[in-house]
Lab assay of single mutants.
Amino acid sequence: TTYKLILNGKTLKGETTTEAVDAETAERVFKEYAKKNGVDGEWTYDDATKTFTSTE
């Protein structure tokens, strides 16, 4: 399943996707990605669109 991440950081904005077996796995991948890029925001998830959003 393809999951999408929308980053709305103070210094980094953008989108990326990952293939994962479930939302929990995708969330771990995306949170590590955000951390590596210095984004520490509030997380939301929309199951209908398989989209995570992190907003600082």
Rank of each mutant, 00 (worst) to 15 (best):
T1W: 11
T1V: 12
T1K: 10
T1D: 12
T1Q: 12
T2D: 05
T2I: 14
T2Q: 11
T2E: 10
T2A: 06
T2F: 09
Y3M: 02
Y3D: 04
Y3C: 03
Y3T: 03
Y3G: 03
Y3P: 04
Y3E: 03
K4W: 11
K4I: 13
K4D: 02
K4L: 08
K4N: 06
K4F: 13
K4A: 05
L5M: 04
L5N: 02
L5W: 05
I6Q: 04
I6H: 05
I6W: 04
I6F: 06
I6N: 04
I6E: 04
I6A: 03
L7I: 13
L7V: 08
L7C: 08
L7T: 04
N8V: 13
N8C: 14
N8L: 13
N8W: 13
N8H: 10
N8M: 12
N8G: 04
N8P: 02
N8K: 12
G9E: 03
G9D: 03
G9A: 06
G9N: 05
G9R: 03
G9I: 04
K10V: 13
K10L: 14
K10N: 11
K10M: 13
K10S: 10
K10H: 13
K10W: 11
T11W: 14
T11I: 11
T11G: 09
T11R: 11
T11H: 14
T11E: 11
T11C: 15
L12Y: 15
L12N: 08
L12Q: 09
L12G: 08
L12E: 06
L12T: 12
K13Y: 12
K13S: 10
K13M: 10
K13P: 04
K13L: 08
K13T: 12
G14W: 15
G14N: 11
G14D: 12
G14F: 15
G14Y: 15
G14H: 14
G14T: 15
G14E: 13
E15Y: 13
E15V: 13
E15H: 10
E15N: 07
T16P: 02
T16G: 04
T16L: 15
T16N: 05
T16W: 15
T16H: 14
T16Q: 08
T16C: 15
T16D: 03
T17W: 14
T17P: 01
T17A: 07
T17D: 04
T17H: 09
T17I: 08
T18F: 14
T18K: 03
T18L: 14
T18H: 07
T18N: 02
T18A: 09
T18I: 15
T18R: 04
T18Y: 14
E19M: 14
E19K: 12
E19H: 13
E19C: 15
E19V: 15
A20Q: 07
A20W: 02
A20D: 02
A20V: 04
A20T: 05
A20C: 09
A20M: 02
A20G: 03
A20I: 02
V21Q: 13
V21T: 11
V21E: 12
V21G: 10
V21P: 15
V21L: 13
D22V: 02
D22M: 03
D22K: 03
D22R: 03
D22T: 06
D22S: 08
A23G: 04
A23V: 13
A23F: 15
A23T: 09
E24Q: 12
E24D: 10
E24I: 12
E24G: 09
E24K: 13
T25A: 13
T25L: 06
T25H: 13
T25K: 05
T25Q: 12
T25R: 06
T25S: 13
T25E: 14
T25I: 07
A26V: 01
A26Q: 00
A26D: 00
A26S: 01
A26C: 00
E27G: 08
E27Y: 15
E27V: 05
R28S: 08
R28Q: 11
R28E: 07
R28Y: 07
R28M: 10
R28L: 10
R28V: 08
V29W: 14
V29T: 09
F30T: 00
F30V: 00
F30S: 01
F30A: 02
F30L: 06
F30C: 00
K31I: 08
K31D: 02
K31F: 06
K31E: 03
K31R: 14
K31N: 04
K31A: 05
K31P: 01
K31T: 05
K31G: 02
E32Y: 05
E32M: 07
E32H: 06
E32V: 07
E32C: 08
Y33V: 05
Y33L: 05
Y33A: 02
Y33Q: 02
Y33I: 07
Y33H: 04
Y33P: 00
Y33W: 13
Y33C: 05
A34C: 12
A34P: 00
A34Y: 02
A34H: 01
A34T: 06
K35S: 10
K35D: 06
K35Y: 10
K35M: 12
K35R: 12
K36N: 12
K36C: 12
K36H: 09
K36F: 10
K36P: 01
N37P: 01
N37S: 10
N37W: 15
N37E: 09
N37K: 13
N37D: 02
G38R: 06
G38N: 09
G38I: 02
G38Y: 04
G38A: 06
G38T: 02
G38E: 05
G38H: 08
G38C: 07
G38P: 01
V39K: 02
V39Q: 04
V39H: 10
V39W: 14
V39E: 04
V39A: 05
V39M: 09
V39R: 02
D40R: 10
D40T: 11
D40A: 11
D40C: 13
G41W: 15
G41F: 07
G41A: 06
E42M: 12
E42H: 12
E42Y: 13
E42T: 14
E42Q: 12
E42G: 05
W43D: 00
W43V: 03
W43A: 01
W43Y: 02
W43T: 01
W43F: 10
W43K: 00
W43P: 00
W43I: 05
W43S: 00
W43H: 01
T44V: 09
T44E: 10
T44K: 09
T44L: 07
T44I: 08
Y45K: 01
Y45A: 00
Y45I: 00
Y45S: 00
Y45L: 01
Y45G: 00
Y45T: 00
Y45N: 00
Y45R: 00
D46A: 03
D46G: 01
D46W: 03
D46F: 03
D46K: 02
D47S: 13
D47W: 08
D47H: 11
D47T: 08
D47L: 07
D47P: 14
D47Q: 10
D47A: 14
A48C: 09
A48L: 11
A48M: 11
A48W: 07
A48T: 12
T49A: 07
T49H: 05
T49K: 06
T49R: 06
T49S: 10
T49E: 05
K50E: 02
K50I: 01
K50T: 03
K50S: 05
T51K: 02
T51G: 01
T51M: 03
T51R: 02
T51Q: 03
T51P: 00
T51N: 01
F52E: 00
F52A: 00
F52G: 00
F52I: 01
F52R: 00
T53V: 09
T53A: 05
T53S: 07
T53D: 01
T53Y: 14
S54G: 05
S54N: 12
S54P: 03
S54C: 15
S54D: 04
S54K: 03
S54M: 15
S54Y: 14
S54T: 15
T55N: 09
T55A: 06
T55Y: 08
T55M: 08
T55P: 02
T55C: 07
E56T: 07
E56I: 07
E56S: 06
E56N: 05
E56W: 07
E56G: 05
E56A: 06
E56K: 05
E56R: 04
E56L: 07
